[in-house]
Design a protein around this nucleic acid. Structure first.
Length: 713
DNA sequence: GACCTGCTGCGGTTTG
């Protein structure tokens, strides 16, 4: 225990009292390095491997908490995670007489006020709460956070590649600027396995040169079992549910059915089967539309009822590090959209004494089976999709610009530009581009120029003084569902929301008794039979590599011992269907099926490339139907030669910009992916579409190399 | 048929 001896005595006492026999590998490595240097570190290690302690043990040994001011700022993407970590960190801090303060939208205000009176110790916060402080009480940011020594960013991978991540990076740099002595950063992550991702990670922390990666490569052994139950209707096949029940009834299980409606269907139907068989009653659902208190109860149950089995049907709400302990079995119903997501889900399982740890992959559709298989094979190859960071985040610039102006009582142009230009988040955006955007914001009354100084304009006030301002993502308002004052969850308005309709929610069945459209409330009573609720969402993008792997599987002869008979037969059938194509190169060759009067182009490409191809086809007057499951375009009544059309698609730049402008003007909803993009000048909206929504560069690369293989008979 | 994430300030009332 060499690192142990380097820690301060109170921390060593903590370890002794905890009766830890040894430090985990990630802790051994991190303790030595964090104590010895002021480098930034990224600690990469699987869920529940002691990452939090790997960061906090050395930081608490090292930092001098005697001086006034907050010394350590911990940032989390989730309130639930802050509440979880608070208990752990606070217990540790009892040994040091250092105070820990939760600072998020649901945290106790008295504690926050106390911190302002006497800034000290450790603060646990969300990015949005930092944003709010910059906007409303910029002097408090200085008062509290100008003497930081360490910042800890938890679940850092959840920020990378998103607008929320760009916002956090900007906030981090704004904090760094008000600290005379630069603070060091320790970031924690469970799912970074590709060396290419290291570059983006280091860049994110703002000091690539002095950022080091510490990685525990210990893998989790898990046994995959594929089961194929083709379904003919939107409902899950009964044999699948019965098999699922048998596989999970004596375990602690997490089931990921991908969609909230289906999460409810699984929870309710399994519970019914369990009731019939006199099995356990602990069937729950957990997703964003389940009431918060109900979700907390479910988490509490999973964490504390160690002697009882349970089954939680959930969405990605249980992907991140909220502590529910380990489960015995993880079930994925139909394919995940990314390997990163699969890694997180697999990471939830752990071995119980004398029990094999299993991952069940159920598929209800042949394409989903193929995609699931592709994901599993890529997982075994340790592949993970690359992180794509928008280097010209004009929309986040709009937001941060308003945040900076609001935080001042008037700022001159040169000072505003200086603040943006010295923030490396925006270093690829030119000064002239910034000026364009500032000019446009002034035109639409988001900013107002008084003398030499910019302040927030009349229209800007409406936006900045709204609580929706602090976040980079949009949310719609749902109707609150309750039963005699007990909150159950919420549902979006749809034709389903009417009196006497029966729906599933929070793993139970309800009859709608009253809908109050004005108050957006639904009153329900329990009942015995019903339907899954309808939600409307967008599916996440599917990575290019996953589609490529799907194609590869179709052209190999391999048998998979983890596939059931139905599944292997299905894959063999698909292979037979595709055997009419003489295809050998999975990077460049793609099948083109010619039949009577239509053709089907199987692009086997990532979502962004497909969106771009669809747009270009339409732009060239080629009407097509796109099918996401099979990544294919069906084109009817095409007279010209499709291949030459595809190879010679019109990429004239000015022409493309005209087409994109037309798209933005006729269909502004195309910008819905960006909360702040709507306030950009139209030519910047076009650039945003090119950078974030479409991917012309990759599409051109793909099409240039593309060799279309036609069917032979 | 299709995921997730967060939220100030102020004035009022209640509580110790």
């Amino acid at each position: 225990m060499s690192s142990y001896n380097l820690l301060s005595e109170p921390i060593r006492k903590y370890i002794r009292d905890k009766r830890w026999e040894s430090l985990r590998p990630i802790q051994e490595a991190a303790i030595q390095r964090i104590l010895a240097t002021d480098n930034n570190y990224v600690l990469i290690s699987k869920t529940a491997s002691g990452k939090t302690e790997a960061a906090f043990l050395p930081i608490l040994s090292k930092v001098n908490f005697k001086e006034s001011g907050v010394k350590v700022l911990y940032i989390s993407p989730l309130i639930a995670l802050i509440n979880d970590q608070f208990e752990r960190v606070e217990k540790l801090c009892e040994y040091l007489d250092v105070s820990v303060t939760k600072w998020h939208g649901e945290a106790n205000k008295g504690q926050k006020d106390r911190l302002i009176k006497d800034p000290n110790g450790i603060v646990l916060i969300t990015p949005e709460s930092i944003e709010a402080m910059f906007v409303n009480k910029p002097y408090n940011v200085y008062h509290l956070f100008s003497t930081l020594e360490y910042m800890v960013i938890d679940e850092v991978h959840s920020f990378l590649g998103s607008d929320r991540g760009i916002q956090l990076k900007s906030l981090l740099e704004r904090l760094q600027k008000i600290n005379k002595n630069k603070f060091s950063i320790v970031a924690l992550s469970a799912t970074v396995s590709d060396v290419n991702q290291y570059v983006e990670l280091k860049e994110f922390l703002g000091n690539s040169e002095n950022t080091k990666i510490i990685r525990d490569t210990n893998k989790k052994d898990i046994n995959a079992i594929f089961k194929y139950f083709p379904n003919a209707s939107p409902e899950l096949p009964i044999p699948l549910l019965e098999d699922l029940y048998e596989q999970t009834k004596d375990s602690k299980t997490l089931i990921f059915p991908n969609a909230r409606g289906r999460v409810e269907e699984v929870a309710v139907k399994l519970k019914k089967i369990s009731d019939k068989n006199k099995g356990h009653k602990n069937y729950f659902s957990h997703h964003s539309a389940v009431d918060k208190e109900v979700r907390e109860y479910v988490e509490f149950f999973a964490k504390n009822q160690s002697h009882q089995n349970f089954c939680i049907s959930c969405t990605s709400t249980l992907e991140l590090g909220i502590d529910i302990g380990n489960v015995d079995e993880v079930v994925q119903i139909d394919a995940t959209h990314s390997i990163a997501s699969l890694i997180q889900r697999v990471g939830r399982s752990g071995r119980r004494e004398g029990k094999q740890s299993n991952l069940f992959l159920y598929a209800t559709d042949k394409w989903s089976l193929l995609q699931s298989l592709a994901c599993w094979l890529l997982y075994k190859e340790q592949y993970i999709e690359p992180i794509v960071v928008n280097k010209k985040p004009f929309d986040v610039l709009v937001h941060q610009l308003l945040s900076i102006v609001k935080g001042t009582s008037g700022i001159i142009l040169s000072e505003l530009l200086e603040q943006l230009k010295t923030n490396s988040t925006f270093s690829d955006i030119e000064i002239d581009e910034m000026k364009d955007i500032i000019f446009h914001l002034t035109e639409i009354d988001f900013l107002e120029k008084i003398g030499n100084e910019f302040i927030i304009g009349i229209e800007g006030e409406k936006v900045v003084n709204n609580k929706e301002f602090y976040s980079l993502f949009k949310t719609e308002t749902f109707f609150k569902v309750s039963n005699k004052g007990n909150k159950i969850g919420e549902l979006p308005v749809s034709f389903q929301i009417k009196v006497d309709e029966n729906i599933f929610l929070s793993a139970r069945i309800w009859k709608i008794k009253d809908v109050d459209f004005k108050a957006k409330k639904i009153e329900v009573i329990p009942t015995n039979d019903g339907k899954k609720p309808l939600f409307f969402g967008n599916s996440a993008d599917t990575a290019h590599k996953i589609r490529e792997k799907m194609l590869e599987i179709l052209f190999t002869k391999e048998k998979y011992d983890f596939l059931d008979e139905m599944g292997q037969d299905c894959i063999d059938d698909m292979r037979k269907d595709f055997s009419v194509f003489q295809l050998t190169n999975f990077t460049t060759e793609r099948p083109l099926l010619l039949s009577n009067d239509n053709l089907t182009f199987y692009s086997f490409a990532g979502s962004k490339i497909n969106k771009t191809i669809g747009f270009i086809l339409k732009h060239n007057g080629i009407e097509n139907l796109y099918f996401d499951d099979s990544s294919s375009f069906v084109i009817k009544n095409l007279n010209s030669d499709f291949i030459s059309v595809l190879k010679h698609l019109n990429f004239e730049k000015s022409d493309l910009d005209v087409a994109l402008r037309e798209l933005v003007e006729t269909n502004p909803a195309v910008l819905d992916f960006s909360k702040w993009g709507q306030f950009l000048p139209v030519n910047y909206q076009i650039q945003l579409l090119k950078n974030n929504y479409f991917d012309f560069e990759e599409t051109i690369n793909f099409l240039q190399l593309l060799k279309v293989i036609k069917n032979t008979d």
